[in-house]
């Protein structure tokens, strides 16, 4: 290989990097928006792979609470517009109710500043699927935690909180999870 060729390749690589870096660097751009949309879609799809106990679905709505991610809440509202989840109309809230029924799905975004571990500990054993977008989300008690792998949105699963909440999760979902924490061993399945 000659020096000239190596130089040309270096130029091409640089140009490509600049292009990628430039397009990714835009704040609140379409890129950010798209991530919220993908998350919203994932949330919706998670509900298809998880079964709630029949008594938990006795209410008049499938309740979703989104914490620390107002854009996602808005996006989720758009995604689930006119749709039903588990045969129920969807109700989205941005705060946990002081009283009354627990949400079926709790999403804790990066914007949540509170103590996630404490919050989740309070709601433990409720038939509630907790999806977090936090570092160490699983360790803090989340069942599913979003993470970015190679610029792509992926997720990891912990089975212990799922079992504790009385939910059943499809193995198919586990197949696409980046990491699965087993209930007993607590080690990653993959």
């Amino acid at each position: 290989m000659t020096d000239g060729r190596r130089r040309i390749q270096a130029w091409i690589a640089l140009t490509a990097w600049l292009f990628v870096a430039f397009s990714a660097a835009r704040p609140l751009s379409a890129e950010a928006y798209r991530e919220e949309a993908v998350k919203a879609a994932f949330l919706h799809r998670f509900t298809g792979y998880v079964d709630w106990p029949a008594e938990a679905l006795g209410g008049d709505a499938f309740r979703i609470t989104v914490l620390g991610a107002p854009e996602l809440a808005a996006e989720l509202g758009r995604v689930l517009e006119g749709r039903k989840v588990k045969g129920l109309p969807v109700a989205i809230a941005t705060s946990l109710p002081r009283s009354g029924p627990h949400p079926h799905l709790l999403y804790v975004g990066r914007g949540y500043a509170g103590d996630l571990g404490r919050l989740l500990a309070q709601h433990r054993s409720h038939p509630m699927l907790v999806v977090t977008d936090q570092p160490q989300g699983l360790e803090k008690g989340g069942a599913i935690n979003f993470l970015l792998v190679d610029q792509r949105l992926r997720f990891e699963v912990s089975l212990e909180p799922v079992q504790a909440a009385g939910l059943t999760m499809s193995s198919q979902l586990l197949a696409v999870a980046v990491r699965v924490l087993d209930a007993r061993s607590g080690t990653g399945a993959r």
Binding site: V38, R45, Y49, R152, L153, Q172, A175
Partner: peptide
């Protein structure tokens, strides 16, 4: 089988 892969990209 492939549905989840597609669903979760």
């Amino acid at each position: 089988t492939v549905a989840p892969a597609l669903a979760f990209d």
